[in-house]
């Protein structure tokens, strides 16, 4: 019961992140949305591991946490080096 409430909260969080990714207004705003989306997904996988009783899913969460950090850093580097010069940020 509590686990389903948890999953509901996390789905709401994903929708709010997607709203920010779609809305912008600037590229860094979207990156913040994506960064949080990956954090929420890490939490989601952990909750799913508890629901299904499979420990192996925690490994998936580990890998996702590692890769999400790299993605955010790459985006930050891209923005600092000029971003998309054909568009005003």
């Amino acid at each position: 019961m509590i686990l389903w409430l948890t999953i509901g909260l996390l789905i709401a969080a994903v929708l709010l992140c997607l709203y920010r990714v779609a809305r912008g207004p600037s590229l860094p705003d979207r990156v913040v949305g994506l960064d949080l989306l990956s954090s929420v997904t890490v939490g989601f996988i952990a909750v799913y591991a508890v629901v299904s009783g499979e420990i192996i899913y925690i490994d998936v969460a580990t890998v996702l946490a590692l890769i999400a950090f790299l993605g955010t850093v790459a985006f930050a580097y891209f923005i600092e080096k000029g971003g998309m010069p054909w568009r005003k940020t």
């Binding site: 948890t6 909260l9 996390l10 969080a13 949080l36 939490g43 909750v47």
Partner: peptide, 20 residues
Amino acid sequence: SALLILLGALFMFIAALGVA
């Protein structure tokens, strides 16, 4: 454990609400 998970989800929801 259920309480901790619920609290964590609540904080994630608050974070997403803040971002929005």
